[in-house]
């Protein structure tokens, strides 16, 4: 791999963390295209990114869990599926050549991008009757909604569908070194019928453990270079920290839309590189 200056890596990572938070797509999905643009080999970029995903997701999850919005049981049940997916996904990356990884990354980026525009079904009642398996798993919960000033009760459903789908999300996370939060939120929302806030925060909790499972494979294969990982972890966390706080204050959506266009361009660029259209 080309030797990229750690100073440059640091700045790229701050930008990736920032854009990831502002667009709501997560750091890894911006970091990997950016690193490859700076000459880092895609497998090394994936390995570096997945370590930084542990940091950003654990940091965000810590606050949500203490607020009582995250559903720990839903998370811990689904982690059984995502870690297996991540281990297999990372193993596939190790044996794959570079071109398919570029294409897969571009496609996943575009799909994640599109999910941001899916109108999430906002139910008025999240206590729909559940199947026996979901009831056995005790997937009922409640949280205090600060915007609506009331307790929202909900019942997680279709765990039999959510589990296998999460294996797929874990596979993508391990394969491409990203959190795959957009896919996880979609599964929690559409398959398991959880309120949007519970979906996003629980997805965050699952991402950390999933990324660790993937990381273990990349470490064993010798792809984790601490000298390169160090500036990236610090940079992505710093960028995400600033981006998250700025996002809360912004009422203007034009800036967010600008970043979404940037991401669209990155997705197309990755696919074109994978197809060999551009070098």
């Amino acid at each position: 791999m080309s030797i990229t200056s750690p100073g440059v890596l640091f700045l790229v990572s701050i930008a990736a963390g920032f854009v990831g938070a502002m667009s709501g797509m997560g750091g890894g999905i911006v970091l990997i295209p950016a690193l490859t643009l700076f000459g880092v080999n895609i497998k090394h970029a994936i390995a570096i990114s997945i370590v930084s995903v542990i940091a950003t997701s654990s940091g965000a999850a810590s606050a949500y869990v203490r607020d009582g919005v995250t559903n720990l049981k839903v998370g811990m049940f689904l982690e059984m599926f995502t870690i297996l997916g991540a281990i297999i996904g990372a193993t596939v990356t190790l044996v794959s050549s570079d071109q398919p990884l570029f294409i897969a990354f571009g496609i996943v980026l575009l799909i994640s991008w599109a999910t941001l525009f899916i109108r999430k079904h906002h139910l008025t009642n999240y206590l729909q009757p559940a199947d026996r398996f979901s009831r056995w798993l005790e997937l009922r919960g409640s949280y205090y909604d600060h915007a609506e000033h009331k307790d929202i009760e909900y019942q997680g459903r279709r765990a039999w569908l959510g589990g296998p789908c999460m294996f797929g999300a874990g596979f993508i996370a391990g394969l491409l070194g990203i959190g795959a939060g957009a896919l996880k939120v979609l599964i929690l929302d559409l398959a398991m019928g959880l309120p949007p806030k519970v979906s996003t925060t629980t997805s965050n909790l699952i991402i950390g453990v999933t990324a660790l499972a993937g990381t273990s494979i990349y470490i064993a294969a010798g792809y984790v270079d601490p000298g390169l990982v160090a500036p990236v972890i610090v940079g992505v966390v710093a960028g995400a920290f600033v981006g998250t706080r700025l996002l809360k204050r912004l009422s203007n959506h034009a800036i967010r839309q600008f970043f979404l266009v940037v991401l669209l361009a990155l997705g197309v660029e990755m696919i074109l590189r994978g197809l060999g259209v551009i070098a």
């Binding site: 654990s58 940091g59 810590s62 869990v65 203490r66 009582g68 909790l205 160090a230 610090v234 966390v237």
Partner: peptide
């Protein structure tokens, strides 16, 4: 349990960033 998990995650991430920053 939420408090336990929440503070564990927070402590781990802060400790990690501080150690990496010190080394860098």
């Amino acid at each position: 349990m939420e408090l336990l998990v929440g503070y564990l995650l927070l402590t781990g991430v802060i400790l990690s960033i501080l150690l990496v920053l010190t080394g860098m």
